[in-house]
Amino acid sequence: MSTDYQKAREALGARLRELRIERPDGKLTGPQLAGLLGWPHSKIYKLEGGKQTATRDDLRALSEAIGRPDAFGELAARLAGFETQIQSWRRQLANGHRPVQERWNAEVDRARVIHAWEEAVVPGMLQNADYARHVFARYADLHGSARDIEEAVRARAQRQEWLFQAGHHFRVILWEAALRSLICPPAVLATQLDRLAGVIGLDTVELGIVPFSASVKIAPANGFWVLDDRLVIAEDWHAELWLDDADSVALYTKVWKTLRESAVYGADAHNVINAARCALSSR
């Protein structure tokens, strides 16, 4: 869990404790408040100590129990503030993969310029349907989520329409590993590589590849996207990070520019793709 997330959760807990102590009808102890709510008293201490994340329903119940229903708005805003930063896969995938793709679509539709880095997978904006099916299936297996794969593939394909709209720019850098990772059968990857080669030269796409042989100034690591210098979306195994503070956006932009120094473009990028394509022929 990120330090910023934990600090925000602890700050919310401290505010809950403050409201309990400053209750209009007099201070309540933790066990007394738990009794009013029908909760185990340990839940109060976990919430106030930043050991457990409150839900909106928890905050509404607490606000009413201490006689401060007017405090719910403030508490809910605090919760929303740090929950929007860390979008756990468990929570996001509760209703399947399609809603996640649709949320992405909404953010992409707002953007004019997108900078992306992917270290191990072809980015969704450039995936063909067969490749996308295998990616979604792998993640559905990992997280035990609903297998609404066809709906998710259609939603991802809809996002790709953005690439063909005037004034849009998709500036993407891939590590060579993304061209060789067999997250799908070799035949599917071969077709995907053909699609990738085909976008080189597209007016709205700038595709760079960092070859295995390239000297790098920073270790290739987690994939991330920067949308219009206003939002960073970075992926980890447990969650996506949605970061909109200026310092985070500036840092990820700096990382992208540093990785770009090691990338090749145009004919050189074609050569790296062709090498990966040829390697599949021997499998």
Rank of each mutant, 00 (worst) to 15 (best):
V205S: 14
Q158P: 01
T29L: 11
H270N: 04
E48W: 03
L12W: 11
V108I: 14
V100P: 00
W256I: 00
T84F: 04
R15T: 10
D130I: 01
A177K: 09
R159T: 08
D203V: 07
F170H: 11
P123V: 12
N128H: 05
W104C: 02
L93Q: 02
R103N: 03
T3W: 07
I86M: 09
S262H: 09
N274C: 04
L93D: 04
E22V: 05
K217C: 10
A80W: 00
R23K: 13
D148S: 10
A157N: 05
R60Q: 08
A178H: 00
V113G: 02
R91H: 00
P99W: 13
A11Q: 14
K217Y: 10
T29Y: 08
H238V: 11
Q158Y: 00
L259I: 07
K7W: 13
Q52F: 09
S213E: 15
V232W: 11
A155V: 05
V188Y: 08
A234H: 05
H115R: 12
V135C: 07
L37A: 05
E206P: 02
R68P: 06
A111M: 06
E48F: 00
I21C: 07
D194V: 06
A214Y: 06
P186C: 03
A250Y: 14
D244W: 06
Q92W: 02
R138G: 12
S248L: 07
R260L: 00
G13V: 06
R20F: 10
C184V: 11
D4C: 04
W104R: 07
E150R: 08
E176V: 00
R98Q: 15
R98S: 09
W237D: 04
K51S: 14
R138E: 10
E64F: 13
R15Y: 05
M125E: 01
E119K: 01
L189S: 13
W39T: 15
I44D: 09
R68V: 08
A219G: 12
L142M: 13
R110F: 04
L182W: 03
Y139G: 12
W162N: 10
P24K: 11
G50R: 15
L37W: 04
V188L: 08
K254A: 11
R15S: 13
R98E: 15
F82D: 02
L62H: 02
E22D: 13
V122C: 00
G73V: 02
E261M: 15
R56E: 06
I21A: 15
P24T: 10
I273Q: 01
G201Y: 11
A155K: 04
E118H: 07
L28K: 01
Y5K: 11
A120G: 12
V264F: 07
V210A: 01
K217N: 10
R78V: 01
R110I: 01
K46F: 09
N105W: 06
W225G: 02
G266C: 10
R78M: 04
W237T: 09
A129H: 03
D245Y: 07
Q165V: 12
G167D: 06
V272P: 03
W89N: 01
D268A: 13
A279L: 01
I209S: 00
H41M: 07
E176Q: 01
L79W: 07
D247Y: 11
G124Q: 01
G26P: 11
V249S: 13
V108N: 12
D70I: 04
E151Q: 13
N274L: 02
F212N: 08
R98D: 13
R15W: 09
E235T: 09
W237Y: 09
Q158M: 03
L12G: 14
G167T: 14
R15V: 05
W175T: 00
I114L: 10
